[in-house]
Structures are given as C-alpha cells and as structure tokens.
C-alpha cells in the first residue's frame, strides 16, 4: 500500500515536473514569438508609412492634374501593362535560375571562408562568375526596361495634355501642397514666396540702429537654419552666403516702396541660396545615368508606379470625387 502511495507520489511529482518544464519552454517560445511579432508589426508600420507618403504625394499630383475619366482609364491601363512587363522581366526563368545559382554559390563561399581560411579550388571562381553573370543580366534587364519605360513615356505623353505634362515635370512630391491662391497651378511643392516677402517687409521696417545691431545675428541664424535643413554648408560657404544675404538685405532696405513692391517676388526668390544638392543630383545623373537602375522619366515615375493603380481604380469607381 505504502509502495503504491510512493509510486503515486513519484508519478505526481514527475507529471508536475514535466508540466513545469513544458510550461517554461512554451512560455519562452511564446515570448520569443511575441518579440518577433512586435518586430514584424513595426516593420509593417514603417512600410505602411512609406507607402502612405508615396500615395499622398501621388494623390496631390492627381488633384492638381484634373484628369478626365478617359485619361484616368488610359493611365490605369498603362500602369497595369507596365507592372505586367516588369513582373515578366523579374520572373523570367533564365533570370531566376541565374539568381538561384548565384545565391547557392555565394552561400557556399560564405560558409567556406567563415571557417577561417581562404576558399580553395574552383568555388571562388564559380561564385565570382555567377555573381558577374547576375550583374550582367541585371544590367541587360535594366537596359531593356529603360527602353520599355521610354515607350511608356511616349504613350503617357499622348494621353496627357502639354500643360499637364508641364505640371508633372515640375512636380515636387509633398504631403501638403502650399495653398497659394495667387497661382492656380499648384500640384506639389509649388514655390510660394509669401513667407519670404513677409520677412523682407519686416527687415525693411527695422529702424537703422536696430538693423545695424542685429543684422549679423539675423543673417547667421538664417544661414544656420538653411545649413541644418537643406544641406551641410562648409565654413567658407557659410561666409559667402552671409555676405550675399547682407548685400541683398541692404539693397532691400534701401529700395523705395514702389521699387520693392515691383521687385518683391524676384527678391524673395533670391533669399534661398543656390541648391547645391540639386546640382549634384543632376551631375550624378549625367555621369552615371540611372545610378545602375533603369532610367525613368518623371511622368513615368509619378504616374505609372504601382500605388497609382488602386488610387485610380478608387476614383473611377466613384468612391472619391474628381
């Protein structure tokens, strides 16, 4: 009887132990799963934020283009065709095979050199060859895609009017387009000088002694703000900029009221320093067209991307007013 009780006790303890071990293990697993879920969630949110940025920018452009329903239909069909063409290129069996081979050989090479000694035999050469082959294929694919994109650009040109093309070509993506009622053409970050003109007026209003006392501080702050927001300026660039602005503001202060009113738009444009980043991007585009990616015109980039498809579908279904 005692033995039976002992056995029962052992069985009970064993079951309890197993249960404890199991529960600890599963809780750890669950915790880890929770962690990865959270990471996945954040990644997903980042992706969504990026997508929303692009979508908002596209909607801003569409709102400023005043497309007709026929134009929308044609653009939608064109965007669909381009997506199909792209997918076909990416999913071609030859490309897939090359990609898989490169993946396999580079993986083997990685494992080999991880052991601490340089890889020997044919493996490095084969991996290099596969990698080179993949790069060549990508290049070829980009060239043919660039050709296709050019064709699409021509088609898009025939759908849009010259004025719409001009809006697309000067479009700067943004979340909220500035509301400038003086200019009805405002799709993206249209240049709006109202703020700059106000600043110039305030500078003109400053009494001479206040201006003399504060001008260095005012100009330094403007240059620093620009350097912080747009691009980092070197000390020399900052000095040049300060000299330029000092001369400009002196000129503004010495102007007659009439002269200022006639010139204010041009003066406001001149407050902004030269955008060197834009120049660098242009140079890069010239020296390395497409930066290894297929060359894409602005209309194709903004109007034939993947996220325009659901937006246009929604508009054509009448969910959103035009």
């Amino acid at each position: 009887m005692k033995k039976l009780i002992k056995m029962k006790k052992k069985l009970l303890l064993g079951t309890l132990g197993i249960f404890l071990i199991f529960s600890t293990w599963t809780s750890g697993e669950l915790h880890a799963a929770g962690d990865s879920d959270e990471k996945e969630d954040i990644r997903e949110s980042y992706k969504n934020v990026n997508l929303l940025h692009q979508e908002i920018s596209t909607i801003n452009l569409l709102n400023g283009l005043y497309l007709t329903r026929d134009q929308m239909k044609e653009i939608l069909s064109l965007a669909g065709d381009l997506r199909k063409d792209r997918e076909e290129m990416i999913n071609s069996t030859e490309f897939k095979a090359t990609l898989k081979e490169a993946e396999k050989l580079l993986g083997e090479l990685r494992n080999e050199i991880q052991k601490g000694s340089p890889a020997r035999g044919e493996l490095p050469h084969e991996a290099h060859r596969a990698d080179h082959h993949l790069k060549e294929m990508k290049k070829e694919r980009n060239i043919s895609l660039s050709k296709k994109l050019k064709e699409y650009d021509i088609k898009l040109n025939s759908i849009l009017t010259d004025e719409q093309m001009s809006v697309v070509n000067s479009f700067k993506p943004c979340l909220t387009p500035p509301k400038n009622l003086r200019d009805p053409v405002r799709a993206g970050q249209a240049s709006d000088n109202m703020g700059a003109i106000k600043r110039l007026r305030r500078l003109r209003d400053l009494p001479d002694e206040v201006w003399e006392k504060r001008k260095d501080r005012i100009i330094s702050r403007m240059v620093d703000r620009y350097s912080k927001r747009k691009y980092e300026m070197t000390g020399e660039e900052k000095l040049q900029e300060k000299n330029r602005l000092t001369a400009l503001f002196e000129q503004v202060r010495n102007m007659s009221e009439t002269e200022f009113e006639l010139e204010k738009e041009a003066l406001a444009e001149n407050i902004r320093p030269e955008d060197k980043i834009e120049g660098l991007v242009k140079e890069l585009e010239f020296r390395k067209p497409g930066h290894g990616r297929p060359k894409m015109t602005r209309p194709v980039r903004f109007l034939l991307n993947d996220h325009i498809i659901p937006i246009l579908e929604e508009r054509l279904e009448g969910k959103q007013g035009v």
């Binding site: 007659s256 009439t258 009113e261 006639l262």
Partner: peptide, 19 residues
C-alpha cells in the same frame, strides 16, 4: 491696412516702362 504711403505716379510709370 498696411499701405504704400509713398505712392508716386511718375516713379511707378517709369519703373513699369523700364520693366
């Protein structure tokens, strides 16, 4: 309102023509 108080017809016309 903030007005242009030194309105000078002669100056304005000459500046308009020059531009």
């Amino acid at each position: 309102t903030r007005n242009i108080t030194s309105f000078n017809s002669g100056e304005i016309v000459s500046k308009i023509k020059a531009r």
